[in-house]
Design a binder for these strands. Structure first.
Lengths: 214, 214
DNA sequence: ATTCAACAAAATTTCGAAATTATAAAAAAT
DNA sequence: ATTTTTTATAATTTCGAAATTTTGTTGAAT
């Protein structure tokens, strides 16, 4: 009898681990180890790793297995630059296409995010709120471009956002209260420009928010 | 004894078939059929289809298998718009970073392409030269952005180019001599603007080349 | 005639193991 | 001592089949 396995759950778990630096950069991901840890077959692990490769979080070389992506300044620069391009284009398209519903969703996402960021900035409890902040940050940026009419751009952005996050957490940067104090106003600037439909200002706000990673 | 199978070759074969409309739009890709056709295991087919899903040429739904992508005007529009964005950004970065070597490669790729296009436009032998033209066209556009400093943009462009091609061939368009007569000058305009480092003109030339698919 | 349930057939997913290939270690040759 | 060959070990890929889920069909109930 086959023990029921939950491929999706293992996938999500590994995905989460990759975005919280539970593995080192360019670290080998051994199917045999993972197989034992999750009590499933090597094939299932292989399929999951192939999907994570498609997401850009893992690299694959024929006959030599899987690795987490490298974390280098060059790659961080590349991912950041590309994210800026996609987010600017997506945000502007959203500003042109989005209506009241989009504005409301963006305001809501920002409200949540700024609440968490303020709490972290004042209390200093970074670790405790990391996952919460992480989800809220992703949601805000995703909502920003959500009214953009290109499904392909949105899909691509989601991939790139994850890769960006992977670079961030892997190259341990200053995630102290200073960081959170700084980004509160940056997120506010993006929100304001977006709702005001001020395209050049929004472009600039997105750039200013991300330029520290270039 | 296991009969040696060539996963890569089957993959490339299916990839080629997807880009030459050997399957209908949104057609189910049955692992069992493919397994028999290529004389390999269902698992191997599954792995290949997962890779093609990562490339964006195939869709996958849990427990209900794989399908070729749909071919709709909306999707063609989306893919075209995104391709224009990536190609414009990539070309301009190439013009800024590329040196003599890049110029030479671009000139070479264009020479090949225009030779084939002229032959097709005059002889009318479209079918006979389709694969040849297809490879040359891809190579020209790929070379155009090859000196762009973002590996991520280049990777993404390659994926989107394939998806664009898939839409083109699936929605049978006018691939007669008229088409080839038209694009000869369009490719020439892109080349000229790129070598002249004229950014606005190059942007426009890329748009003009692709706008018929919007 | 339409809807629903029960069953049968087909397709998908997962497994455990065999076969292949890469990697590491030891031995031999320069 | 360094390089090359050989051997042993480990990892990857592929298979064939079992288990699961979906899809299609038949027959009963409304």
């Amino acid at each position: 009898m086959l023990t029921k396995v939950h491929t999706t759950e293992i996938h999500d778990e590994l995905h989460r681990m990759l975005l919280t630096a539970q593995f080192g950069p360019a670290q080998k991901l051994k199917p045999e180890d993972l197989r034992k840890r999750y009590n499933c077959s090597a094939n299932t692990i292989r399929e999951i790793l192939l999907r994570l490769t498609a997401a850009g979080l893992v690299t694959f070389e024929e006959q030599r297995g899987f690795r987490t992506r490298e974390a280098t300044p060059e790659r961080r620069h590349d991912v950041t630059k590309f994210r800026i391009l996609l987010e600017q284009e997506g945000a502007i398209a959203s500003m042109q296409n989005g209506g009241l519903e989009w504005e409301a969703q963006l305001a809501a996402a920002h409200h949540k995010l700024s609440h968490i960021e303020t709490r972290v900035a004042t209390s200093g409890a970074v670790e405790d709120n990391m996952q919460l902040w992480s989800d809220a940050e992703r949601d805000f940026h995703k909502t920003l471009i959500s009214a953009c009419d290109s499904a392909l751009l949105r899909e691509t952005y989601n991939r790139v956002y994850d890769q960006f996050r992977q670079q961030m957490v892997t190259q341990e940067r200053d995630f102290g209260t200073n960081y959170f104090r700084a980004i509160i106003s940056e997120h506010q600037a993006i929100l304001d420009a977006a709702l005001a439909r001020d395209e050049p200002t929004c472009r600039e706000a997105i750039y200013d928010h991300l330029k520290r990673n270039l």
